[in-house]
């Protein structure tokens, strides 16, 4: 399927490239929205990504799925953007309380009584871009570790560590928010 589409693009079929954009823009949006905060910049970055994809298509070697390759280009384009803007440097990982769950701590049950989706979204937005990105790629897009490794270039161990830390930080932040509300 990928090959047919790519061959059509390489023969000059603009419709085929439009098809590629439509089928992958959801995944690209996930990465761009998680990595780039500025709305105007997102538009430019998204267009840059597909211009790079178009230029790179003749060199695509089918060593991964087309969508994975495009996601990889998206990720590196966003990283370049962050590097250029130096925006990420001001971000910090949410403070880790530095302890594992303590014995007897049972407020988790109460989480289910609250609608915490909004808080979760806000807390996710506070995570550093790379953490946000791997989190949504794994849990929302349902990508496997191998695919995320191909996209981000992170070693698998590092990726798993990022995911673990992000989930732990989110859980702790949600508990913290809950406690504040109760007080």
């Amino acid at each position: 399927m990928d090959k047919i589409l790519i061959d059509r693009v390489l023969r000059g079929d603009a419709g085929a490239f439009e098809e590629i954009i439509r089928s992958t823009e959801g995944l690209v949006a996930q990465i761009v929205f998680k990595m780039v905060k500025n709305i105007e910049d997102r538009r430019d970055v998204a267009q840059d990504i597909y211009v790079r994809v178009y230029r790179g298509l003749p060199g695509f070697r089918y060593q991964s799925k087309l969508s994975t390759w495009i996601a990889r280009i998206s990720y590196t384009t966003c990283l370049n953007y962050l590097e250029k803007k130096r925006l990420v440097l001001s971000d910090t990982f949410p403070e880790d309380p530095g302890m594992d769950r303590e014995a007897g701590q049972e407020p988790e049950t109460l989480i289910f009584k609250k609608q915490l989706s909004g808080i979760l979204q806000a807390e996710m937005d506070k995570l550093p871009p790379v953490y946000r990105t791997v989190l949504v790629l794994f849990h929302q897009e349902g990508l496997h570790y191998e695919e995320i490794v191909q996209i981000t270039g992170l070693p698998e161990g590092t990726l798993k560590s990022y995911l673990f830390r992000a989930r732990k930080a989110l859980k702790e932040k949600l508990l913290l928010n809950y406690k504040k509300e109760e007080l």
Partner: peptide
Amino acid sequence: GYQWLVGEISRQPAPAFDFDLSGAV
């Protein structure tokens, strides 16, 4: 608690570009 968190992340609304990306590209 973790089960809820993982489920909630997967249920978060997927972002979408608010312009015609293919046309612009």
